[in-house]
Amino acid sequence: MKKFVITNNPLVKEKLSEYIEINYFDITYLDILKKVRDKVHKGYKLLTHPLSGSLKPNETPYKSIIIGHNNDKLDMESLMIIESSIQTAEKFIKDKNTPNWNEKILKDFQVIDISLIEQLVKEL
């Protein structure tokens, strides 16, 4: 199965490109989830949970999700998970948008985000 990461985390692009194909986009957390939903409709399946980590969707700006090619077949379980994840993220963002964090804090969020998938990517 061809696997790759959909991410808006520049640190993932920088550090993990030698292990796995990285599709990097300079878009929001929510838009990453929506991009993954598009992929699921096109026959890809989720390999990691979209709401990985306990950081809230209106707290961290970064999200990295590993998906795999599912022979162009729609994986219903992936679709259910990504849809409810989008719903959850929208619920948080509706109450309060992600703050404009300073550079140092953004770096910390990048480090947490990569730590959620780094070991996995190296073992895949």
């Binding site: 980590g53 306990s54 480090v111 947490i112 730590s115 959620l116 998938i117 780094e118 070991q119």
Partner: peptide, 8 residues
């Protein structure tokens, strides 16, 4: 048990 990565 929480088991996901740094600080988790």
């Amino acid at each position: 048990l929480q088991s996901q990565g740094l600080l988790h």
